[in-house]
Write a protein that binds this DNA or RNA. Structure first.
Length: 259
DNA sequence: CTGGGGACGGGGCCC
DNA sequence: CGGGCCCCGTCCCCA
């Protein structure tokens, strides 16, 4: 079974330009927004969060922001890269080219135009029009009279047929690895999987030349080069490269007061 | 226990 | 509308 299937945390998702992380070199480390942590201080989770520099576990609920609160500076993702100085949208790419379209420069200022992702709600029925009264009973009533496209394989609901079709692929898994037979919902997932067979690692770290088969893994790796990680404990100000590490840290006692 | 890498899934955006 | 890609996130495993 998929590991994260249907168990995603509903964090507000923004779209920081992580390409910056991957393309900036040494100088970038100095310019990491997180470097401002000390000044931003972390005695207050809100303070910490308001800086948009790190994620503080204690304020995670605050991340569940309505779509209206999407100012880049107010509720950015894990990293606030919207600052003009850091968001050069630059050249992502020295080492991380995708097989398909290599160093296509990312969209100039994605954060400015980014619309927060809407989390989809689930229903248990197959229908194309959601009765208004049913909408009212739902937790997050949206799109009152909008057609709802419901997956017949699971309770998921989508507001567009395209999104639904995309989702259905996760059930049908049309992309099959010819080597091991494992099936995937999308071709690029399969390509990524195939790299595990071929050993291809097209994403390399500009700092240590370590290569990765997966861009996300490179992104995580780049955190290890950062002096200040992007997930910060609201109590002890310690920073972590991953949310899971921060969560472990919190649950293990340090943040007993805040968690 | 902590930190990090590997693998992979999802939704959203762009073309 | 569909494909491709991006980013985010999670889980597992290992050092």
């Amino acid at each position: 079974m998929p590991r994260s299937f249907l168990v995603k945390k509903y964090f507000a998702k923004q779209k920081p330009n992580y390409s910056e992380l991957e393309c900036q070199n040494d100088a970038s480390l100095d310019r990491y927004p997180l470097a401002e942590l000390s000044s931003a201080d972390s005695n207050s989770a809100a303070t910490c969060f308001s800086t948009g520099l790190v994620w503080d576990l204690s304020v995670l609920p605050a991340l569940y922001l309505p779509a209206s609160q999407t100012q880049p500076s107010a509720a950015p993702g894990p990293l606030d890269l919207s600052s003009p100085s850091s968001l050069s949208s630059s050249a992502s790419s020295s080492g991380e080219e995708d097989e398909g379209r290599t160093s296509d420069p990312p969209s100039p200022e994605p954060v400015h135009t980014y619309a927060p992702r809407q989390r989809m709600k689930c229903t248990g029925v197959m229908a194309h029009i959601s009765p208004p009264e049913e909408e009212e009973e739902r937790e997050t009533p949206v799109t009152a009279a909008r057609p709802a496209f419901l997956c017949k394989h699971c309770p998921k609901e989508y507001t567009s047929l395209g999104a639904l079709k995309m989702h259905i692929r996760s059930h049908t898994l049309p992309c099959v690895c010819t080597t091991c037979g494992k099936a995937f919902s999308r071709p690029w997932l399969l390509r990524g999987h195939i790299r595990t067979h071929t050993g291809e690692r097209p994403f390399s770290c500009p700092h240590c030349n370590r290569a990765f088969a997966d861009r996300s893994n490179l992104r995580a790796h780049l955190q290890t080069h950062a002096e200040v990680k992007k997930y910060q404990c609201g109590v002890c100000s310690r920073t972590f490269s991953r949310m899971s590490l921060l969560q472990k840290h919190s649950s293990s006692g340090c943040c007993s007061t805040s968690v």
